[in-house]
Design a protein around this nucleic acid. Structure first.
Lengths: 126, 126
DNA sequence: CTGCGATATGCAGGCGGGTCGATGCTGTTG
DNA sequence: CAACAGCATCGACCCGCCTGCATATCGCAG
């Protein structure tokens, strides 16, 4: 799959809003599904959570293997997927590779799922 | 898997917020991942979109097979997964089975993903 | 009661994905 | 320079999932 990598970007640019108004086309569906696939894994959700709650909001691989209970190659694998999905950013300092959550990434996905911003389920404050 | 079926319910009750504060535990991660897995498929995203944009906000299987380009059994299969995930509700009227989106389902998931956003999410009209 | 249309379920094939061990690369340390 | 630590990549195994075909089930019409 190569839609991964710029997945979030491609999905973000056009405001597709899958559950919004009109049916989404195959291409948009695949792009959004690609990003959601990156999220739809226990290990990766925990990785995001761990990184997010880390001291500086960043963590290196060696700090993540133990809490997850997975091998180092596996953790690197998951971090790679999350990074290619646009959810994480990598910064190599010395021997370590620090991962950090892309600030607006998750929020963007959440927004894509909640299109009826205005006509919300039950809020007509007036 | 049996976390499916009440997946969304289990995930909704406790405000887990995967990306919120502290690391989520394995159980919550698996539950949320289960719901996200249901969403992370092009066919199912399009199904949700099609149903949502249908006349009465509901559609039967026979109306969905053609637009999706998938066989009837396959469509039923996807609808089953979405229903068990708590995203769709099924109502059988006569020979047909009408599917409808559970109103707050998607919104709930979106909220679970956007906790870091100021907790202003809950408004106390006062 | 019999036949037909709409769905659901069972079964099987094929592909993608998660995991680990081994290995290669790079930068640090002695 | 040599030895070592942190990560990424490779190859392989195995399980789960998407899909379609065939079949069973349910409801309605004649």
């Amino acid at each position: 799959m190569d839609f991964v990598g710029t997945a979030l970007a491609d999905v973000t640019m056009p405001q597709i809003s899958p559950l919004a108004g009109e049916p989404i086309d195959r291409a948009d569906a695949e792009r959004l599904a690609g990003v959601l696939k990156a999220l739809a894994d226990p290990a990766r959700l925990r990785l995001l959570s761990l990184i997010q709650s880390a001291p500086e909001g960043e963590a290196c691989v060696c700090d993540l293997t133990a809490p997850l209970g997975l091998s180092q190659p596996t953790v690197s694998h998951h971090l790679r997927i999350l990074t290619e999905a646009g959810l994480l950013e990598r910064e190599k300092r010395g021997v370590w590779a620090f991962y950090r959550i892309v600030p607006s990434a998750i929020g963007t996905i959440a927004d894509l799922l909640t299109p009826p911003r205005k006509r919300a389920t039950k809020k007509a404050p007036r």
